[in-house]
Structure formats: C-alpha cells, structure tokens
C-alpha cells in the first residue's frame, strides 16, 4: 500500500498530520479511522495515512518483549517522521509513541523518537488545542452520554477536559460523569487475556458505574477499553451502546455500536 494524501487540492499552509490508525481500529472498527480522518480534515489539516503502519508495539512492550517492541517502534517512527504532527485516536498508543518510545530506544533512535514524541497527540487533545480550525457543530441523536477515561490518556497525556469540552461544543452533549472516572476498566492490553477473571470484575465495576450514571451511550478514546467493555456488557446482557468519541464528534453514528449488528 502506498502513502496517500486524503485530499490533493488543499492549500500548502494546512499542516500535514500523519494519522496513526492503531491496529485495533484497523481490525475492528475502521469507521473510527474514517471518522478521525474526516475530523482532522474538517479541522483544517492535510492528512496522510502512512501505508506501512501496523501496530505501535504495545503488546510486545507490555509483555516484556522489548526487542520486538523496539523493532516496531523504529518501524513506526519511520512512518511518522515526515509529517508536521502525528495524531492517534487512542490514548495508550499515543502514550506509547510519545512517552515510551524515547525510553525504549537509545542513541540516534532516541533522538528521532523524541522528535516524533514532541509532535504526537491523542486525537481529542489535538482537535481541542492544536488543530488550526474549530470543528463544525454536528447533530447527534443522543445526549445521554458517559465518557470513559482511558488510563494512559488520563495519566500519561493528561487528556481529561478535552473530549468533554469537544463533546459539548461540537455535539451539544454534557457528559454524565462517573463516580470513579480515574479507575481502570480492566482491559490492560494482554492483561485481560492473562487474568480474565480479575479483568472482568474490573469491567463490571466500571459498567456498574456507567449504569448508575444513567447514560445510554458510553464513549471513550481507546478502542481496547471500549472493545473490552462492550464485550463484557454483551456477555452480561447490559444494553449499553459503546462507541469511540470520534464517531460522535463526526456526527456519523450510522455504523452499529461496538458489538451490535443488524
């Protein structure tokens, strides 16, 4: 696959943004990738989607395979270096690139990692504070929405108010706050497969919190958490609609919610 510009006719003062799709969005929810692409364009960016991107290396990294993680880090950096900004629709993958690549790599690669880290943003943070244009207002059919703060986004990147303010200004949604928004949902990458019972209990606690908020839709910025929560809710028979925040901000809820189908 070749690198592709989404729109050839844009003026050159528009910053170029390399969109790192993330492996989970690529595999499970391409609609989030297209929503992110469209949001970035609406926010005045020229978007490039490097064609050789695969996975940021978190599974290897968190499982202790640092060698495998380093190889993927170098490969990913090469894909992203050329753009003015790197934007990622996932707090944990953005955190991997901006916080962990520089720790993982050494020598000249560390320098390259630091350079990319300085221009890498989680999607909400970028749209909120960096993008040249404000997002146009959209209509969404629901206003009963809770937001799940992914841990890496929250604590490594300090993404907290940005999605809430965007949801408010773009969709007119006031997020229903959870009682314990800073508590992990139990996904944890490979953790949920290594310790499924503990992970499920943590997901149940989060889902209980969501239920108590009376929100009908749960959105968030991390595909991993969302897949895990939707999967657990489905197993429990809890009728909650789970979506990525990009879907709401783009105003396009035509795809069935995660784990639901027609």
């Amino acid at each position: 696959m070749n690198d592709v510009s989404s729109d050839q006719s844009v003026p050159s003062e528009r910053p170029t943004v390399a969109l790192f799709i993330t492996c989970l969005v690529d595999l499970f929810r391409p609609s989030v990738g297209f929503a992110s692409l469209s949001l970035l364009q609406r926010a005045g960016c020229e978007v490039v989607i490097p064609g050789q991107q695969t996975c940021c290396g978190q599974p290897a990294y968190n499982s202790g395979d640092y060698r495998g993680a380093r190889a993927l880090a170098r490969q990913t950096l090469k894909q992203l270096e050329a753009a003015d900004y790197v934007v990622v629709p996932s707090g944990s993958c953005a955190g991997m690139i901006s916080e962990h690549y520089p720790r993982l790599l050494e020598g000249p690669w560390r320098e390259r990692a630091l350079a990319v880290a300085a221009k890498t943003y989680e999607l909400n943070a970028f749209l909120h504070s960096v993008a040249p244009a404000r997002l146009p207002v959209v209509k969404v059919k629901t206003d009963s929405v809770a937001y799940h703060d992914g841990c890496a986004g929250l604590r490594e990147l300090h993404v907290r108010k940005q999605p809430r303010e965007l949801l408010h200004s773009v969709c007119g949604i006031t997020v229903k706050e959870l009682q314990q928004p800073e508590v992990c949902c139990g996904f944890g990458g490979t953790f949920c497969a290594k310790m499924p019972q503990i992970s499920a209990r943590m997901a149940d606690n989060k889902l209980k919190d969501v239920q108590a908020s009376q929100a009908q839709l749960l959105c968030g910025g991390d595909m991993g958490c969302l897949l895990s929560l939707a999967g657990r809710a489905s197993r429990n028979g809890q009728p909650i609609e789970v979506r990525h925040v990009a879907e709401l901000l783009s105003g396009d809820l035509s795809a069935p919610a995660i784990g639901k189908d027609t």
Partner: peptide
C-alpha cells in the same frame, strides 16, 4: 471465558 468478542466491521 468472560466476554463476548465484538465482531469487526
């Protein structure tokens, strides 16, 4: 064992 697996699009 604990969760359903959301099908991909």
């Amino acid at each position: 064992s604990q969760r359903d697996f959301p099908a991909p699009q």
